[in-house]
């Protein structure tokens, strides 16, 4: 929680800096996960796993 508070203070006090820093983190997570899911989708076995992953979300 201390780290959460520290970062929130940074965001509040540096309104012109935080977004660029956060974008790298938020975007890379989406890009990497998307790449991984697409790779899984290339094989029959992978597609079965993907279905299970998607079922977990629903």
């Amino acid at each position: 929680m201390e780290q959460v508070e520290k970062w929130a203070r940074y965001v509040k006090e540096h309104p012109n800096k935080w977004k660029k820093e956060l974008k790298l983190f938020v975007d890379s997570q989406i890009i990497i996960a998307n790449r991984f899911y697409k790779k899984l989708n290339e094989t029959e076995e992978g597609r079965k796993k993907l279905v299970k992953i998607m079922e977990l979300k629903c």
């Binding site: 309104p15 012109n16 977004k19 956060l22 974008k23 938020v26 975007d27 989406i30």
Partner: peptide, 12 residues
């Protein structure tokens, strides 16, 4: 808290 348009994340 204002930001540049180019700062938008993929999510946003």
């Amino acid at each position: 808290m204002k930001r540049e348009v180019s700062d938008k994340t993929i999510l946003e």
